[in-house]
Design a protein around this nucleic acid. Sequence first.
DNA 1: CGTCCACGTCTAC
DNA 2: TAGACCTGGACGG
Length: 419
Amino acid sequence: MPEGPELHLASLYVNKMCEGVVFTGSVQKSEVSKSPDVPFTSDAYRITAASRGKEVKLTLTPMKSDEPKKRVKAGQADQPMDIVFRFGMSGFFRFTSEDQLPKHSHLRFYTKEKPCRVLSFVDVRRFGSWQPNGAWQPGRGPCIMFEYKSFRENVVSNLSNHAFDRPICEALLNQKYFNGIGNYLRAEILFRLDIPPFVSARSVLEGLDSDDFCENEKPVKQENADKKKSGRAKQKKVKEESGDLLRLCHTVPLEVVNQGGKGYDPEKQDYSDFEAWLQCYYVEGMKSIRDHNGRTMWFKGDPGPMVPKDAKSPKAKNRVKKDDDHDYTAKKKVNKSRPAKATKRTAIKQETETKTPKKGKDAEKETGSKRRKTEKNQEGNTPNGEKTSTARRRKDKSAEPVTSGAQTRSGRVTRQSSR
DNA sequence: CGTCCACGTCTAC
DNA sequence: TAGACCTGGACGG
């Protein structure tokens, strides 16, 4: 659950689940984790969370004790400790009973209850990490969701930086300026403004003001009126109803946070809400190609002038399996189309200590990402989404010829924006 | 069975 | 600017 919204939802989840809960003892780390041990022990402590961009900070706060002496003597903490987490591609928090520990639980906090419960940092791929006594990672910019003003200023006042020499879609993943934006958000944001992904970031951003003039205005759609006088563009073309690019970097992620109001609960939610919200990322009929870093960029229409020369669209087909196990919003399907599999896991097998001497590395080298990038440069350079080439040239965002059908293979309707 | 793909950083040539 | 770091699901043969 990796982008800004998911990290924030994770912090909400922790605060909600741990409110009033007392934890005790030391913090346990899985055998396989390479992240640092957490040197914290307390007879009674509480846990709260906060998020900033793509990081979550847990604060462990020891509760007051009547006998400070004992506490100190026992090596107990008497001061709060912050632990800063990054989620990698698959991290999330989960609060369960002790016998329901999720697989891949790599850091655990135990409650003081009789049958105790456990707050786990779960991370299947282990790309995530944490730092005890940590602080927000230096170098990461202001949060796109909750530090909007400074986020804007940071971008606008640094447009001369080389980071903006790149295509806008790649600049958007630079956490020094867009802390919280990830692969699905960049696609959704650029799609809404009809900005070709591979146009220079600087050209798209220059002219934007460090202040968001729309901030206090109602997001009303007075399109007709505005469009007419748009001829004398005061600055760039500011999408009347939605705001400029920087504003969408703020509002689009917040839409995810506010979605359904169900909040973060890996057990109850259904992924379909999030899936239905996506307008571009992984949506049938959209195009996709790999950017200069090998990341898949989803978009519609013109890719823009800075397209990687070799880039080819990844297997655009068959990929959008409806029921995949994504959980960006940390909402997992309840028990939907699950092929009835007696899921009564009682004994969760813990990580298998893989101390394998990494031999298969060589064998895989040829099939790794490297190959992926190079191997596909053939096949005409047309960055078209395969069969997606249905009419729809230029920005004729007018009446879409219902090209790629309205029905996706996942049964989802490809909503045609409302712009 | 093997290949490709995934919400992201990190760090070595 | 390539890999490296990981697990696992979908799909192809």
